[in-house]
Design a protein around this nucleic acid. Structure first.
Lengths: 335, 335
DNA sequence: CTGTTAGCGCATTCAC
DNA sequence: GTGAATGCGCTAACAG
């Protein structure tokens, strides 16, 4: 027993019991099964409990019941604006079921992700892995010891909710083609990202279908800060339109262009993804809707169902997206 | 005992013990005090443990030691871009001390905040309350039963780290005055926010000092989406410059202005706060630096010190800020 | 160095 | 309806 830990002891069930002249089990029932007790007894116990400031010890309860009423949520980068709405929604939903949520930040590192998972075992009932950077194998292995729900990661046999940007991106490319753009560049995101691969593949496929020239650029930084050279690459490709992996990159590109006197959208059309900026930028960014909050809610729902009913049929929940037209695209000016 | 919970039983210390032909306490030591054991014994136990997939049960350990190795972090709105960097920093710092973090979203609601606190008791060793909406009294009361560190909330006697925007805001006002602005508007944030009150007071004080006309506007929404009327109010006040509670409001205002053909910065100067947009917008937003990540790190450090050493002298850690000049301010055009 | 014993705070049989 | 006893998985004295 550690001294600093013992200093601030919160009252236990026993203290309430003796103060109320009942057995410990009775106090326990007053909190978890009040119906088993006479109303009068419950009232008396509750009064005493409030008096001495008793709050049931969640940890002790968990040990005894095996139900932790906690879940964990792990994301590659909590500060990336894509995740907070999802985290928030998950937190709210968990909260309403009286669950607490552990937050993990894998820092884009698979080993860190594994380590976090290890630490959460025996403390949570299930885990939500958002945009996991783990290998399929590691994901399966973890899913074997813990109920797991994936977001934006498609592994057969593991419950997953996918935000399908392909429809939105497809619409975006068609929109550009309709405006007369013949050469477009895709500004790529993290390589391990399922979403990035999906978006890139979609732009490529549609370009082929619509007979457009297609280029890819792989920036080093997620916001393009300090990468003015990228603009030269875009110009060199003679692209008149750019679709970026996410809104941050799109906005970064617009800022770079602005510094160089290249006006968006008239000289260059730019489309983002994820709609994290809303309409608050000027010019308002055309983008692909994201629905990440919904994804969070659904992921939790799936996890809870899984906890109640045990392993079920293979679940693959797909949320589709659409193109959001705002003001960063214009007719192509052929060079 | 709940059936679904028992279905997926992870191996316990006893199973490792019998498989390795040692006492349970020896296995325990192998994990928490390997130095007490012969290297050979440790190796053998570890091998067995890995074999049968044993992972120490955090909850049971916590119950026995009274040390939970968990902390909680509660914020009004996890999705507000001000918080994620702070949350991320706190998470990282906690992680490096092998602590997990519980995330709470109070949804700007004091009662929800209290409720979360209740649920965290007996599960965490301490709490970080960011931009708490609780009354001083409730904060004190909670601090009496749990080590507590405040961020951006100034309650005497409770450890707190404050991001002092007054210096930055002061610089911002001086900057505007130097550009010839004589009438400025402060776009207010949440009323219960300590930061908002501080910023507003600073703008007011400096305006007086520099002999400027000062106005306040209280928007209904945090991003100004759907509040075009605000622009009319600003125009009516004949303000030539606006300082907003945060970058989101500032950017929202710029977007509104853009729609109405009012060019920023030439027709209207705008300054934000918190620097959450970086330089990725165009025109790049002039703002007041925020240091929220540092605040997160320091808050955790303070909490850990408190956990180790017990209550100490009154700690009030102040992080000052400065004005970040970018491209949304220009010389005043007197109307 | 390692085994034995006794709880941590609570939920849950089984009696009464 | 309520009390007494047992155990959840682990750590921490105390022995040896």
């Amino acid at each position: 027993m550690n001294e600093t830990a013992k200093r601030r002891v919160s009252p236990t069930i026993s203290q309430v019991a003796s103060a109320a002249n009942v057995a410990r089990s009775t106090v326990s029932r007053a909190f978890s099964n009040p119906d088993m007790l006479k109303q009068e007894t419950v009232d008396r116990i509750m009064a005493v409990a409030r008096d001495i400031g008793y709050v049931p010890n969640h940890t002790a309860r968990a040990l005894s019941t095996g139900r932790y009423a906690n879940i964990a949520l792990i994301a590659p980068d909590v500060a990336n604006p894509f995740f907070p709405p999802l985290i928030r929604a998950a937190q709210q939903k968990a909260d309403s079921a009286d669950f607490c949520v552990f937050l993990g930040n894998s820092n884009e590192d698979p080993r860190q992700e594994d380590k976090l998972l290890d630490r959460f075992v025996g403390q949570v009932e299930g885990v939500i892995l958002v945009s996991s950077r783990l290998s399929d194998e590691r994901i399966r292995s973890n899913a074997a010891r813990l109920p797991l729900v994936l977001v934006n990661r498609d592994v057969k046999g593991i419950a997953r909710v996918l935000i399908d940007s392909s429809i939105g991106v497809e619409e975006a490319v068609r929109h550009l083609a309709a405006l007369g753009h013949r050469r477009i560049t895709y500004l790529a995101g993290p390589r391990q990202s399922w979403s990035n691969r999906q978006r890139q593949a979609t732009v490529k496929r549609l370009s082929k279908e619509l007979d457009l020239m297609f280029f890819t650029l792989q920036p080093r930084t997620p916001t393009l800060v300090g990468e003015p050279g990228l603009l030269d690459d875009i110009i060199a490709s003679q692209s008149t339109a750019v679709i970026a992996f996410d809104d941050l990159m799109a906005q970064g590109l617009i800022a770079l262009a602005g510094q160089r006197g290249i006006a968006v959208p008239h000289a260059l059309s730019v489309i983002g993804c994820d709609d994290v900026l809303g309409a608050v930028t000027y010019p308002a960014l055309s983008t692909v809707s994201n629905r990440s909050a919904e994804a969070g809610t659904i992921a939790i729902t799936l996890l809870f169902e899984r906890l109640k009913a045990g392993p079920t049929a293979d679940v693959r929940y797909v949320l589709d997206t659409h193109f959001v037209l705002r003001n960063t695209t214009a007719e192509a000016i052929l060079l």
